[in-house]
Amino acid sequence: MRYPLKFVLLGVSLLVAVDASAQIPTLANCTRSANLLACVDGEGNAYSVNTAGSTMYLRGFEAAGKRFWAQTNSRYGQLTFFTGIASDGEAWVGYNRRVGWTTINRFSSSGGSSGKFTCNRIAGC
Rank of each mutant, 00 (worst) to 15 (best):
21 S>Y: 14
35 N>I: 07
9 L>Q: 11
82 F>V: 07
95 Y>N: 03
65 G>I: 08
67 R>S: 14
5 L>M: 14
4 P>S: 15
94 G>R: 00
48 S>D: 15
75 R>P: 02
37 L>G: 02
102 T>Q: 05
45 N>L: 06
7 F>Q: 04
54 S>G: 11
20 A>P: 04
19 D>V: 12
75 R>I: 08
18 V>N: 12
103 T>N: 02
2 R>D: 08
61 F>L: 10
73 N>G: 04
21 S>M: 13
59 R>F: 04
42 G>M: 15
68 F>T: 12
9 L>F: 15
123 A>M: 12
51 T>G: 12
1 M>Q: 13
3 Y>H: 07
28 A>Q: 04
89 G>A: 09
55 T>Y: 06
34 A>D: 09
36 L>P: 00
21 S>A: 14
111 G>L: 07
10 L>P: 09
16 V>E: 09
82 F>Y: 15
107 F>C: 02
56 M>G: 03
79 L>P: 02
1 M>H: 11
97 R>P: 01
31 T>L: 04
66 K>F: 06
97 R>T: 00
1 M>K: 12
2 R>L: 14
98 R>A: 11
38 A>W: 00
99 V>C: 11
54 S>H: 10
77 G>E: 15
8 V>G: 10
36 L>Y: 02
42 G>E: 13
56 M>R: 08
20 A>S: 13
87 S>C: 10
66 K>R: 12
82 F>P: 01
28 A>R: 01
50 N>A: 05
123 A>W: 08
91 A>G: 10
107 F>T: 02
74 S>G: 10
115 G>F: 08
28 A>Y: 00
2 R>V: 08
88 D>M: 12
32 R>V: 13
60 G>N: 02
22 A>K: 07
67 R>T: 13
37 L>E: 05
70 A>Y: 01
38 A>P: 01
35 N>F: 10
28 A>E: 01
67 R>H: 14
39 C>I: 05
72 T>L: 04
52 A>R: 12
63 A>R: 13
96 N>D: 05
19 D>M: 11
103 T>D: 04
51 T>W: 15
109 S>K: 00
69 W>K: 04
110 S>N: 11
36 L>F: 04
13 S>N: 11
96 N>S: 03
105 N>S: 10
61 F>A: 02
50 N>Y: 01
101 W>Y: 14
70 A>I: 03
53 G>A: 06
83 T>I: 06
96 N>K: 05
11 G>W: 10
14 L>W: 09
88 D>E: 10
37 L>P: 01
15 L>I: 08
92 W>E: 07
82 F>S: 05
37 L>S: 03
63 A>M: 14
88 D>F: 08
33 S>W: 06
69 W>G: 08
117 F>G: 01
80 T>I: 15
91 A>Q: 08
12 V>D: 00
5 L>K: 12
84 G>T: 07
91 A>M: 08
41 D>P: 02
87 S>V: 09
89 G>R: 10
50 N>K: 00
53 G>S: 13
84 G>Q: 06
89 G>V: 05
56 M>C: 08
